[in-house]
Design a protein around this nucleic acid. Structure first.
Lengths: 150, 150
DNA sequence: GGCCAACGTTGGCCCGGCCAACGGTAGCAA
DNA sequence: TTGCTACCGTTGGCCGGGCCAACGTTGGCC
């Protein structure tokens, strides 16, 4: 009494937005679970990625880069700093800013997380061929560009 | 000082899971905003859709159909019932159950919401051709089936 | 008669996205 | 110089959505 009986409304399963959000939820769960295994949250990965790719930056800029709110950046960085993955220093040139630098430990941890992410993606898109994945990426990128630029 | 300077890390923008979650966020925001305009939340739409398509059902079954937790179903139904869109009745045949029935007002409201959703989808996938949209739907559906069945 | 399962309900947790407000600081212009 | 404006970090709070644990009630079944 808990199987064929409980079909989803097709009004939902037909809608692209529903499909996308469902897929997103799967991805999100896969990711969060495995990041948690590594003792990290989504914000941590994003911040470390930004630091890794662009080097030291102020908190505000990190927020802009990663799409994380200033206030949330504070908490996440507290966390990362407390675990020695990141260092806060006052900017001598502009005393409003904190300059955030990733430490070697942070870099190492980031690479671990990045490996996890790679596995998750592969898991997520398992049923798609390589060509299809690229198609998908292309379409989603176009959708995003459209909405970001307008 | 807030534009070219604040690029996203490619480590993120490259990942399908990131693209998907970003797209999902856009869709979600479009949807939530417009649903809020109509004074409804996501749960409301889902529940009304299930009732509309399958007719009266117990709360537990509604939860299974829509993927909403039993406990959250309670709250959402309280809301809908309070607005006269849904009626709770004790099931004479099984006194554990409440039988939920959609009212004419509920049906009308659902159709309003459904119209909103249609617009949102179109908005979301604007940059994609019809063929592409179907391709996208097909791929996402396959991905979801894969993860649901395993 | 007893045991287990399902039901509705309450209350709580977490994550992620957001906003308002504050004191401190920088920059620019009158 | 004095202001005004904008930015910065930080605190505290809100909401939506997905979950889980527990309880008392009720049914089904051995």
């Amino acid at each position: 009494m808990a199987t064929a009986d409980d079909a989803m409304p097709s009004r939902l399963t037909e809608k692209p937005s529903w499909l996308i959000s469902q897929t997103s939820m799967h991805a999100h769960r896969l990711l969060v679970d495995r990041l948690a295994t590594a003792g990290s949250h989504g914000y941590h990965y994003r911040l470390l990625a930004a630091l890794q790719e662009f080097g030291p930056a102020s908190q505000a800029r990190l927020g802009r880069r990663t799409g994380i709110d200033r206030s949330d950046v504070v908490a996440a960085l507290n966390d990362l700093a407390g675990r020695g993955m990141v260092e806060r220093a006052h900017d001598p040139a502009d005393r409003r800013r904190n300059i955030i630098t990733i430490t070697p430990a942070g870099t190492a941890h980031f690479q671990r997380l990045d490996g996890i992410l790679a596995v998750v993606q592969d898991d997520l898109l398992a049923p798609l061929s390589l060509a299809e994945r690229q198609l998908l990426i292309g379409m989603l990128t176009r959708v995003l560009e459209h909405h970001n630029s307008k």
